[in-house]
């Protein structure tokens, strides 16, 4: 198992100019730290072997528990409802339904409300599509996509955290039981207050900086904890981080990832950190498979 924090700003897919994406970028130079970070992550991931990518996405929001894609294949056009000027992407994804069902079953055992999504016309969210593309652009691996239950919003950050740790645990058990070699992607930003305006050229680097110093400080602090292997402390501080830095971790992805990895005392490799419309984003990798080899 290998785990990554793999944020999904569609801007990064746009700036990469893949043939799948209809809008073409200007190349004006914004987001280079993150694009380089993803490049470095991809190189590192090339050294591992995987059967499946499991992604937890903030952009599939469900109030009735945690849902998983339960249809074997999806393809089509994904237009981002928020940034349609940047992301109109042809996608083609296979789903590891057997593993999804195993996670569903293990989640129920943990006491979570779980749901399988069986509608073949469902529009796969752009968080899933973008994170999978950025981490493994040429991948033909099947995926599992897990929705973001609204527990943090409907109850409290503490309730959300407990649910995500349980969902992570359920994911780990299902991966082990099915014998998969899994690449886990937590598809979220760190600090997450956006600017609400966009320059004429969205890629103009002049307009790209962190929303405020508070967000920058919190992000730096979280990155220090990651690099120090202090993942337990991240969880301890998560409810405060979420509130004070308006973090997208409120959608649960990072906590799910840490839970799935068993909250290891393992430093994460930060491949890159940068801002997108004022939000803080980090590309991080935890090489659990190497830790296992060394042990």
């Amino acid at each position: 198992m290998r785990g990554c924090l793999a944020p999904h700003p569609p801007h990064l897919a746009y700036a990469s100019n893949p043939p799948q994406n209809e809008p073409k970028s200007s190349g004006a130079g914004a987001w280079t730290e993150l694009l380089d970070g993803y490049k470095s992550l991809r190189k590192s991931l090339d050294q591992g072997e995987y059967d499946v990518i499991i992604v937890h996405t903030p952009h599939w929001k469900t109030h009735r528990g945690h849902h998983l894609l339960g249809v074997e294949h999806f393809e089509g056009l994904s237009v981002d409802p928020i940034f349609p000027n940047l992301f109109r992407f042809q996608f083609d994804l296979d789903v590891d339904v057997e593993l999804a069902e195993a996670i569903h079953a293990e989640g129920e055992k943990q006491g979570l409300v779980m749901g399988m999504m069986r509608n073949p016309e469902f529009r796969v969210d752009y968080g899933t599509i973008t994170s999978c593309y950025l981490a493994r652009p040429d991948s033909k691996l099947p995926i599992v996509s897990i929705s973001s239950a609204r527990s943090y919003f409907d109850y409290s950050n503490e309730v959300g955290e407990r649910e995500m740790l349980a969902l992570g645990e359920a994911t780990r058990i299902a991966v082990e039981k099915t014998g998969r070699r899994a690449l886990l992607l937590a598809s979220c930003s760190l600090s997450h207050r956006h600017f609400t305006e966009e320059p004429a050229d969205p890629e103009d680097p002049k307009f790209e900086y962190i929303y405020n110093a508070n967000q920058a400080k919190w992000d730096r602090h979280i990155l220090d904890l990651i690099e120090g292997g202090r993942n337990r402390q991240i969880l301890d501080e998560m409810p405060d981080f979420i509130e004070q830095a308006v973090s997208e971790c409120k959608d649960g992805s990072l906590t799910w990832l840490l839970g799935a990895m068993g909250v290891p005392e393992l430093p994460g490799k930060v491949h890159g950190y940068g801002t997108v419309i004022g939000t803080g984003n980090a590309v991080v990798e935890w090489r659990l498979d190497e830790q296992a080899v060394q042990a």
């Binding site: 599939w60 929001k61 469900t62 109030h63 009735r64 849902h67 999504m117 069986r118 509608n119 016309e121 469902f122 529009r123 969210d125 929705s147």
Partner: peptide, 13 residues
């Protein structure tokens, strides 16, 4: 085009 409710996908397209 078409749209499916992200939560109530079982209700159809």
């Amino acid at each position: 085009y078409w749209v499916v409710d992200e939560d109530f996908h079982e209700l159809g397209t």
